[in-house]
Design a protein around this nucleic acid. Structure first.
Lengths: 226, 226
DNA sequence: CGCACCTTCATCCTTTGGTAGGAGACGCCA
DNA sequence: TGGCGTCTCCTACCAAAGGATGAAGGTGCG
C-alpha cells in the first residue's frame, strides 16, 4: 500500500496520472494538491506519505525553490520532480537538491510506470533520453573521426613545440620550461611564438585555452602511446 | 552480444568483474585496459563497443579528467564510472559530464548485474543508497554547505575575484578583463594578485591550471544557479 | 561608533612574455 | 648540390604581468 501526493496545478495531468497509477499500481492511495501551500498542509496531515510528485511550475513556487523548501522542511519525504522542461542541467540540479527522480511530462505511460515503481523501490529515476541526448543521441558511426579534423591546429605543431605547449599547459614559465627541456630560454620563446602563430592565439593563456579545447591531453597521450 | 571495456588498474577488481559478468550476462565480450592510454587505443581499435567501465583512479588519469577527455573524444561511447569513492557531489559531477552511470566498488554482486543491465538497456544507473543517504536520513541542516570542503581554495575567493578568474580562464588579458567587467586595469591587477595569493599560484597560467583542477566550471555553475 | 572586509584606483618598480631579425647546425629530398 | 624545414641561440625592443604600497568609499557587524 503506497500513498502518493501529486502537486500539480494542471487538473488534466493529475487525472492522467491518476488513471495510469490506478491501472498499473495496485493498492495505491493518490492525494492531490494544486499548489505548494496545500501540498505542505497535506504533507503535515499525512505523515505516512511514500512519495511526492512535484511539478516545477506551481503558481506559488516556480522552479526548484519549492523543492528546496520541501527538502528542508520534510527531509524524510522522497520527492520526485515532474516537469515539462527537458534541460540536462535542470535535472542535475534537482537531483543535487535531493530529488529522488525526474519525470518529464512527455514520458509515455509504460515508462511512467517503470519510473514510479523504480522510485518507490528506493531507486533513482532519471530520463535516459534527456541525459544521453547531447552527446550520445546519434548513431555511433557518424561522429567517429575526430582526429585530424578537430585537431586541425594541434597537428600543425612540431614535436618540440608540443613539448613546450605541454609544459605551458601545466603552468610553467618560459624559464621553467627551459630548465625542464634543457634548452635556452630564448629558444623557448622562439617555440612559444611559433605556437601562438600556429594556434592563432594572442597570448600564452589563450593558447592553452585553445589547446585544451582541442583535447591536448588526449592528443599527447595518443602520440606517446604510438 | 554486448562488448564492454573495463579500464581499471586493479587486476583483482577486473577479475571479479569478469567473473560476475560471465556468470550473469550471457554473450558478453569483456576487454580490459589498465590505464587511460591503452583504453583509448583499445577504443580506437574496437568501434563497436557498447560500454566503457571507467575507474576514477587510473595511474595516468586521476579523477574526472579522464572522463572528460573520453567524452570529448568518443562522444558515441557510453561511459559508466566505477569508483571506490562515495561522495554525492562526485556522482553528480560525473553524470553532469556525460557518464551514463556510477557504480561504487562496494556494490554487491546482484546489484552490480542490475546496474549493468540497466545501463546496457539505455537507462542511467545511480547508487540509490549514496544519493538518498545524506539528505534523506540526516537532519536538513548538515549538508547545506558542501562548498568549503571539496572546493578548498576556490571557496576562499570573493565574487569579483571569481568573475576575474572566470575571465582569466577564458584566456583574456588584464586589459580585456577590465573592459569586460567595466573596471580599471589596475583593479583587475589587484584582483589577480589576490587570486594568485589565495590559490598559491605563481602566475596567472598556474592559477588557471589549479582552478581547472578544482572544477572551476562546475563551481561557477553552482553559484550562478543558486 | 569602531572595526573588518571588499572594491575601487593609483604609483612605482621588477620580472616575464612576446616580436623582430639574424645566424649556425643538422637532416631530408629532389 | 641547393633548397627546405627544424632546432638551436643570440641581441634588441616593447608590451604585459605581477609585487609592494597607499588610499578612498561601501557594507556589515558587534
Amino acid at each position: 500500500m503506497y500513498s502518493l501526493l501529486v502537486a500539480d496545478d494542471h487538473p488534466l495531468f493529475r487525472d492522467a496520472l491518476h488513471a495510469v497509477i490506478s491501472a498499473g499500481l495496485a493498492d495505491t492511495q493518490l492525494l492531490e494538491a494544486n499548489d505548494l501551500a496545500t501540498a505542505i498542509r497535506t504533507i503535515e496531515a499525512h505523515d505516512e506519505l511514500d512519495l511526492l510528485l512535484l511539478d516545477l511550475s506551481l503558481p506559488d513556487a516556480d522552479g526548484l525553490e519549492g523543492l528546496k523548501t520541501l527538502r528542508d522542511t520534510f527531509p524524510w519525504l522522497p520527492v520526485a520532480i515532474v516537469s515539462a522542461h527537458q534541460e540536462r542541467q535542470l535535472v542535475l540540479d534537482a537531483i543535487a537538491m535531493g530529488a529522488v527522480g525526474y519525470i518529464p511530462k512527455s514520458t509515455p505511460r509504460e515508462q511512467l510506470l517503470v519510473a514510479l515503481t523504480q522510485i518507490l523501490q528506493g531507486q533513482l529515476y532519471l530520463p535516459a533520453d534527456i541525459m544521453r541526448r547531447p552527446s550520445a543521441q546519434s548513431e555511433p558511426h557518424v561522429d567517429k573521426l575526430p582526429p585530424e579534423t578537430s585537431r586541425g591546429r594541434l597537428a600543425s605543431l612540431t614535436d618540440k613545440q608540443l613539448d613546450v605547449l605541454d609544459c605551458m599547459a601545466q603552468g610553467m614559465s618560459n624559464k621553467h620550461i627551459a630548465r625542464e627541456l634543457s634548452i635556452a630560454e630564448t629558444t623557448v620563446k622562439t617555440h612559444v611564438s611559433a605556437i601562438l602563430r600556429k594556434l592563432e592565439a594572442t597570448s600564452r593563456v589563450h593558447a592553452i585555452v585553445i589547446a585544451n579545447k582541442q583535447d591536448l591531453g588526449v592528443y599527447l597521450a595518443q602520440r606517446h602511446s604510438s
